[in-house]
Amino acid sequence: MSQTVKVTFKLNDRPVEVLVEPRELLIHTLREKLAHTGPHIGCETSHCGACTVDMNGASLKSCTILTVQCEGADILTIEGIAKNGELHALQEGFMQEHGLQCGFCTPGMITRAYRLLQEIPDPTEEEIRYWMAGNLCRCTGYQNIVKSIQYAARKLRGEPVETSHPLMGEKAAQSEMAG
């Protein structure tokens, strides 16, 4: 067995230190050593995007990077997306627009979309589909994921947001009438 190595990095704004074998993949360190089980393992072969995290301003598949490569890095996972107990616009968007069903792909989807909206604050549907193509979803058919990201983009730009979901819209209208 090879020697273990000490690696330090920032995880969701908190400094962390781990001892790992050089061959350990970041996804395993996050899930097994640091109790961050938001990033999921869907394929472990760099295809599905469920393990996506944000590192130094780039989305990456944490099943395809070694933890030793992360020395000094700044890493953001789904656990660090909500701030001060308030959901991020993307989390709200996925909720309002039914952007998830089983939820397995969702941490990866939201973490990837987070970086996408930093790079393109006002993406077209085509741009969303192109730049989200590294994340697979077996449930939703993607339509509502696109809508969720559009919802979040509007909110982050400071524009008014409204769910496009017919039942939720109706419910809101009813409660307004009742109120």
């Binding site: 090879s2 050089p22 061959r23 993949l25 472990e44 030793v68």
Partner: peptide, 11 residues
């Protein structure tokens, strides 16, 4: 899906 052990260098 874990690689065989190796030594890591970052010159």
């Amino acid at each position: 899906m874990i690689p065989k052990p190796f030594e890591y260098h970052s010159p």
